[in-house]
Design a protein around this nucleic acid. Structure first.
Lengths: 129, 129
DNA sequence: TTTAAAGGTTACAGCTACTGGAAGGTCAAT
DNA sequence: ATTGACCTTCCAGTAGCTGTAACCTTTAAA
């Protein structure tokens, strides 16, 4: 199938698919005589795998590792466990940071009932906090 | 004062200060005969303001607006209110997204008790979910 | 048969907010 | 005179795409 066909199948833009190939996430596919990329069912599965990982915000470099480790079915899956655990930890860290941010912004946001820059409580706080 | 002096005063790298100047967030300062940037107390205050905004994750384009609006003390501070409210909304949206992400990752992370790639529950779920 | 639309190709630039590094000028102390 | 710390500019890199340009191929309509 051609690139736009697989693109609509896995719900990713053709541009993105070419990008995944460029960064080594996707094997360079065969080409037709005219130079067009030619994809197969296996590529669909890989792309769906990649998209699921990306939806979990897993970095492309980690997705590469997840794909590589699958080359050897007998290999330990410890690295897989670690990638997911680390990703979870990162997300939780981001959550903590966002919670702090939200607190600060929420406090700031309710503080201004004035209408002019010169006595705007928000600006005042941003300057003197 | 020279760039590294103001940099350590406001706890920002000299590199970042030059960057803020380049993107129009900071007025180009006077130069000494040797070409060195020469900063004043006013610049310290502006930089602290900028850093506080950045700590709230406010985009540089929005910080520009916040700085510009302060040119006219009689101007309405509605745009200030809006920038902060929008920022708060963005943060809250990110929080909702991260909460979903965390759920998915947490489920995934506890699911694997096996040790080989061929029957790794995590990989299995990532492929078939 | 010409032509126009739709899709393919590559290559380069842009997004955000910095950061790193190279190459070279300046300054203060030894 | 030289060393080391600091300053300057400019270019490239980060993550994960996305937009655009210039060009080629295929397919369908006029």
């Amino acid at each position: 199938m051609k690139i736009s066909e697989i693109a609509s199948k896995v719900n990713v833009s053709a541009k993105t698919i070419r990008y995944y190939e460029e960064v080594g996430l996707l094997e360079p596919p065969l080409r037709k005589d005219n130079g067009y990329r030619l994809y197969h069912q296996k590529n669909v599965e890989t792309l769906i795998f990649i998209r699921r990982c990306r939806e979990l915000n897993i970095a492309i470099s980690d997705i590469k590792l997840l794909i590589d480790v699958q080359q050897d079915p007998k290999a330990s899956c410890a690295s897989v466990d670690k990638i997911i655990a680390d990703q979870l930890a990162r997300i939780q860290q981001s959550q903590r940071e966002l919670a702090l941010l939200e607190q600060s912004l929420a406090t700031l946001a309710v503080s201004c009932k004035n209408h002019h820059v010169e006595d705007c409580c928000i600006l005042h706080q941003l300057k003197s906090l």
